[in-house]
Amino acid sequence: MVDQSLVGRTFPPSETYVVTRERVAAFAAATGTPWDEADPAPATFPIVVAFAAMRGLMDDPSVGIELRRVVHGEQRFAYERPVVVGDELTATLTVDTVRSLGGADVIGTTSAVTDADGALVCSAKATLVHSAGEGA
């Protein structure tokens, strides 16, 4: 079980992620999204930064989450502005809710994705479903 005391906890920011032309091109190509160098990144691109913040949560031994038991249940983005090449982004994750549902912990999180000036670029809300362990 994940402890209720996790609610409201904010984790250290992810490492700075530099948005390069190559990284956006690879993401656009993998998803088939039409993209030109002058374009902003595809809408879901900030997941790469938000994902790093989620890994930070899951890798923290005090949290008690096992990565292999985690399923990504929901993801929603709200953008202040599009991501562009040259951005230097970090994501800071806060745990909003912890609920128990059918033997699983349902953990609601918000990652604030900010730029080099500290301005919010997008807010990425993720729900992580952590199934109960059986000692395996």
Partner: peptide
């Protein structure tokens, strides 16, 4: 997230170009 990226790709297509999405999301 791959499937959600495809949904966002369709939205970009309908919008006539990138950079106009203010929100996108779903349950998996």
């Amino acid at each position: 997230m791959y499937t959600l990226a495809l949904a966002a790709r369709a939205v970009q297509e309908w919008a006539g170009g990138p950079g106009r999405v203010e929100q996108v999301g779903a349950k998996f």
